[in-house]
C-alpha cells in the first residue's frame, strides 16, 4: 500500500529549484505523505524520463526555460499520454490562459510566495489521502490504517499510537499535529493527552471504556460535550448502517 508522491521540478535556475524543493519539504513536514523530489535543470532529461516511466504525479515546470517555453514542453507531455499534474512557474502571467490548454493544475507567479504555494499543494492533494497514517522511522516506514488505531496517547514529547493488534507505535510529535492530520470524524479529542477512535469505544462513563477494557480519559470539564459528540457520532453511524441495509 505504498503511496509515494513523485514530484519533478524543472527549472533552469538552481535558485528556483532550491526554493520549490525547500517549500515542498516544509509543506510536507507535518503531513503523512511520502514523497520524492527530482530536480531537472532543463527539459531534455525530464522528457526522456517521462517517456520512459511516466512516473511523476506532479511536475513544477518553469515557463521560460532556456531554449523552449514550458508550455511547449507540457504539450509534449500531454501528447505522450502524461496525465499527472502540471504546475507552471513564471514571473509573468502571459501564458496563464494558455496553460488551460494543457490542463495545468496551477500557475505560480514569481516572486515566490509560500502561502500561495501551499494553497496549490492543498488543491493538488485533495482526495489523495488513503485513510492511512504513515509513520517514518529511522530505517523503516510503517503504514497504519485509521481503522486499526484504537487511540493515541501523548506523553511529554512523544505520542503512542495504540493499535487494535496490540502494537504500540511511538512517534515524536505533538498530539495536536496528529489530530490535525487525521481530521476524521471517528477520532475525538477527549482529553489533553488522548485522541480516541470512537469505533473502538464499548461504553462511556467517567472515561471511555474501550473494546479491550482499556480506559481512555475524558477531560472532566468537557464531559457533557464529549458525551454529546459520542452520541451524535453513534446515532449517525447507526443511521448509516440502516441506510446501507
Amino acid at each position: 500500500m505504498k503511496d509515494i508522491l513523485e514530484i519533478a521540478i524543472c527549472d533552469d535556475s538552481s535558485f528556483d529549484r532550491f526554493v520549490i524543493s525547500e517549500m515542498i519539504d516544509d509543506y510536507f513536514k507535518d503531513k503523512s505523505f511520502l514523497y520524492n523530489v527530482t530536480e531537472y535543470g532543463n527539459e531534455l532529461t525530464l522528457i526522456d524520463d517521462i517517456e520512459e516511466s511516466n512516473k511523476y504525479d506532479i511536475i513544477f515546470l518553469d515557463i521560460y526555460l532556456n531554449k523552449i517555453l514550458g508550455i511547449e514542453v507540457a504539450k509534449k507531455f500531454r501528447a505522450g499520454g502524461f496525465n499527472g499534474k502540471i504546475v507552471f512557474l513564471s514571473a509573468s502571467d502571459k501564458y496563464a490562459v494558455e496553460s488551460y490548454d494543457v490542463d495545468a493544475s496551477g500557475y505560480l507567479l514569481k516572486p515566490h510566495n509560500y502561502a500561495k504555494f501551499c494553497s496549490v499543494m492543498d488543491r493538488l492533494l485533495t482526495g489523495r489521502r488513503k485513510n492511512m497514517m504513515v509513520i517514518k522511522k529511522r530505517s523503516s516506514i510503517e503504514y497504519i490504517p485509521y481503522d486499526s488505531i484504537r487511540y493515541i496517547e501523548s506523553s511529554n514529547t512523544k505520542c503512542m499510537i495504540h493499535c487494535s493488534d496490540g502494537k504500540i507505535h511511538t512517534i515524536y510529535t505533538r498530539l495536536d499535529l496528529i489530530q490535525e492530520e487525521l481530521d476524521d470524524r471517528r477520532f475525538l479529542r477527549c482529553h489533553r493527552s488522548y485522541l480516541v477512535n470512537l469505533n473502538y469505544v464499548k461504553c462511556l462513563h467517567e472515561s471511555f471504556i474501550m473494546d479491550n477494557d482499556e480506559l481512555v480519559l475524558i477531560k472532566k470539564k468537557s464531559i457533557k460535550q464529549i458525551k454529546q459528540e459520542y452520541l451524535e457520532y453513534n446515532s449517525n453511524s447507526v443511521l448509516k448502517e440502516l441506510v446501507t441495509k
Binding site: 533552469d12 535558485f15 526554493v19 514569481k110 516572486p111 515566490h112
Partner: peptide, 15 residues
C-alpha cells in the same frame, strides 16, 4: 539575457 532573467527572478524573490 537568460542569466539576467534568472537572476532577476531570484533577486525579486529575495525582495
Amino acid at each position: 539575457k537568460n542569466t539576467a532573467h534568472t537572476l532577476k527572478g531570484a533577486i525579486s524573490t529575495l525582495g
